[in-house]
Amino acid sequence: MKKFGKKGLGLLYGVLLFSFSTYAMLDTFVIPHPMQSVEINAIAETTSTSGIKESVEAAIQSKLGNNTDTAIETESITTASENTDTTVETATSIEGGTVIGQYSDSKTSITLKQYREYDSNIYVADVTVSDASDLKTALAHNTYGRNITDTTSDMAANNNAVLAINGDYYGARQSGYVIRNGKLYRDTSGNRDALVIQKNGEFKFVSESETSASELLQDGALQAFSFGPVLLNNGEISVGENDEVGMAMVSNPSTAIGYLGNNHYVFVVSDGRTSESAGLSLYELASFMKDLGVKDAYNLDGGGSSTMVFKGEIINNPTTSGRSGEERAVSDIVYIGGEG
């Protein structure tokens, strides 16, 4: 009986240890932890506090019930003629590529192009805005917190975005500066090189170990992203040919943002991990953007997160957990809003 009792205690201990470990993993990577609601931009769809709460609760139930990536079926647009609400055709200073979409209003002009480089499909949005504040960010369910996620296309729709790309997926980590639309959400250093978009529209790269997020905010930061690495700094490639992000594969779907000057930006998303698109290394991504004339460029979250949405359509071919054509739910987007 004593021997059986010891075995029973050992089995009980093992079950408890497994249960605790499983909960810890779910708590870290799956279970949403809303921390702060976000004041929605005036151009966004109005969402009540109760609606935010309900959406977060729904996300929690969805995550607990299904640990696979949230996905929706999409179709990429292929011709500019499908974009019937384009108001003004605008010229672009970026050479090459095939124009697949355009948009213009009193504050913004966007020309969307597709390139074929490095055996990959690459999508480039050439964006000019009247003020740096027109380049905005949004959080999933308009809520800051860990594991609060939504698809890029849903966030784009909820914020009346003409153009949107995934951001740095801040919610997958517990450190790294988070400044969004001039508001500080997280000041814990991730010991990375962060991208700061300043009030004058210029890019600034900072080491999180050498400055604080509150100092960045005081100096006029509108946005701060913590992912990286820096791809281009003052026109010079900042990564080596063998550099990669953590445990990422050599070539991946990629998302990046670049600055050309005077409120002129590029959003870049490349496909990868499919038979049609090999994907880009960091060095290839930096080289491609340098050839476009980009001065400063920063790598955002890539892989299955890489998604570009233009006027309600998913432009690229997202690849999530090996499944082509499915979006990964992420924490945040970078977007350009439309009038009306």
Rank of each mutant, 00 (worst) to 15 (best):
L222W: 10
V88A: 03
I179N: 02
G220V: 13
A194C: 05
A329M: 06
N299V: 14
L260T: 09
D291Q: 07
G96D: 15
S212L: 02
S306T: 09
I237G: 08
I315D: 04
G176C: 07
G272T: 13
D219E: 14
G51S: 15
T90Q: 00
Y185D: 00
E89T: 09
S226K: 06
A286N: 08
N166L: 09
N233D: 14
A248E: 11
M155L: 15
S331F: 03
V309N: 02
M308Q: 03
A161D: 03
A286G: 09
G338A: 12
G293H: 12
V230D: 06
D168N: 05
S19N: 04
S48V: 13
V294P: 01
R173G: 08
Y169H: 07
I336T: 04
S133A: 10
N66M: 10
I122G: 01
G220S: 05
N317S: 12
G338Q: 11
D219H: 13
Q223I: 10
T86E: 03
S251P: 03
G51M: 14
G272Y: 08
G190R: 04
S287V: 05
V99S: 06
I110K: 03
E54F: 15
G96P: 07
I148K: 00
I77P: 12
S133N: 11
D271L: 07
D126P: 04
F267L: 01
S109N: 07
N159F: 02
D105Y: 03
D219W: 04
K63R: 12
R116Y: 14
A71M: 06
L231M: 09
T84C: 05
G220M: 12
T68F: 13
V15C: 10
A59H: 00
T149V: 15
G220A: 05
S48M: 11
I110D: 09
D126N: 04
S120M: 01
L16F: 09
D150T: 04
S226L: 03
V206S: 01
V129T: 07
L64D: 13
D193T: 14
S207H: 12
V38W: 01
T84R: 01
P34Y: 10
G304Y: 04
I179Q: 06
N147C: 15
D243M: 14
L9S: 11
F29Y: 11
M308K: 04
Q223Y: 09
E57W: 04
S277N: 08
F4D: 07
A286T: 10
T79V: 12
T74P: 00
F4T: 10
N262Q: 15
D291K: 01
T79H: 06
L280P: 09
Y118N: 14
F4H: 01
K311W: 09
N262Y: 10
V309L: 02
R192T: 14
K204L: 08
L222M: 14
K53V: 15
S130M: 06
F267E: 00
N191M: 08
Y144Q: 04
T149K: 02
D291C: 09
F227M: 15
N121H: 04
G101L: 08
I122V: 13
D296H: 12
S209P: 01
A80I: 15
V124R: 07
G10L: 12
R173V: 13
A213S: 12
I165E: 06
N316Q: 04
E208G: 10
S153L: 05
Q114E: 11
N181L: 07
Q102E: 07
G240N: 14
E95V: 10
T111S: 08
H33M: 08
V330L: 01
S209G: 09
L285F: 02
Y123A: 12
T78W: 02
D69I: 14
Y335W: 06
